[in-house]
């Protein structure tokens, strides 16, 4: 009982110390954190997704030049989203909000390329993430997260769940997927005396402190966003379908 109390105390102190001042880069693996081998590996893993996105977008742009402007503005939108502060129980903190929203709006394919650009800008403009960790971050935030969000959203919609709940779980699980993938990436790069699993448990639990509450907040916010867009933005949603 006493240890349990102490555990809660530690949690709370920790959240109070870091929760208030959390910035978006909490989920971006920072520059220099991965060895060259892992930097390259994650970069290579992204390549097939990027090529597929590139080819399909290029065709789309040739057929319909206006879609280029649309995607570019959506990219800028995604960047601003990732830089703005979302409310959390400890006040507000910034956090990459775009993962689920982007996946539902633009589809996971377009997201993989747009998020690469957004991440590069974040590294250079805001010092969130880094250039050597671009591949790893893009895989967690631009590929794995959006795919999970997208699949969950479509799946729950098919299961006749309300749009609100589908969006909530899509955002929540997309966020959690991003967080799990990031923890896996870190554990692989920094195993504890060669033990990857032990390392994974450590990274998962420390990021859980900040990421689970944030994922819930993001889920709530995304529900509000999507409710409004669905109500007033029918035309916009239809136009965006072209990227999916």
């Amino acid at each position: 009982m006493k240890t349990k109390k102490r555990l809660w105390g530690m949690w709370l102190t920790f959240i109070l110390v870091f929760g208030i001042n959390l910035t978006a880069n909490a989920m971006h693996i920072m520059e220099g954190f991965l060895s060259p081998a892992w930097s390259i590996t994650w970069g290579v893993v992204c390549v097939p997704f990027l090529i597929a996105a590139f080819v399909s977008l290029k065709k789309k742009f040739e057929k319909e030049p206006k879609s280029f402007v649309l995607l570019a503005l959506c990219g800028a939108f995604a960047f601003v989203l990732s830089a703005l502060k979302i409310p959390s129980l400890m006040g507000s903190c910034s956090h990459p909000t775009g993962v689920a929203l982007g996946a539902i709006l633009f589809g996971p394919f377009a997201m993989s390329l747009v998020s690469l650009i957004v991440l590069l800008f974040q590294a250079i403009l805001l010092a969130h993430g880094g250039i050597t960790t671009l591949g790893a971050n893009n895989f967690s935030m631009g590929i794995a997260g959006p795919i999970v969000s997208f699949v969950v959203f479509k799946g729950l919609k098919k299961a006749k769940l309300s749009t609100g709940l589908s969006v909530f779980f899509a955002a929540l699980l997309g966020d959690l997927a991003t967080y799990v993938v990031t923890a896996v990436q870190l554990a692989l790069a920094h195993p504890e005396n060669g033990n990857i699993l032990a390392s994974l448990i450590k990274f998962l639990s420390i990021f859980a402190l900040t990421q689970i509450p944030l994922a819930v907040c993001e889920g709530l916010v995304t529900v509000v966003v999507f409710g409004i867009i669905e109500k007033y933005g029918k035309r916009e949603l239809k136009a965006l379908n072209i990227f999916q």
Binding site: F77, T97, V221, V225, F226, I228, G233, E236
Partner: peptide, 10 residues
Amino acid sequence: CGQLIAALFI
């Protein structure tokens, strides 16, 4: 926050 993001999107 949700309204802001939606308005920004539109």
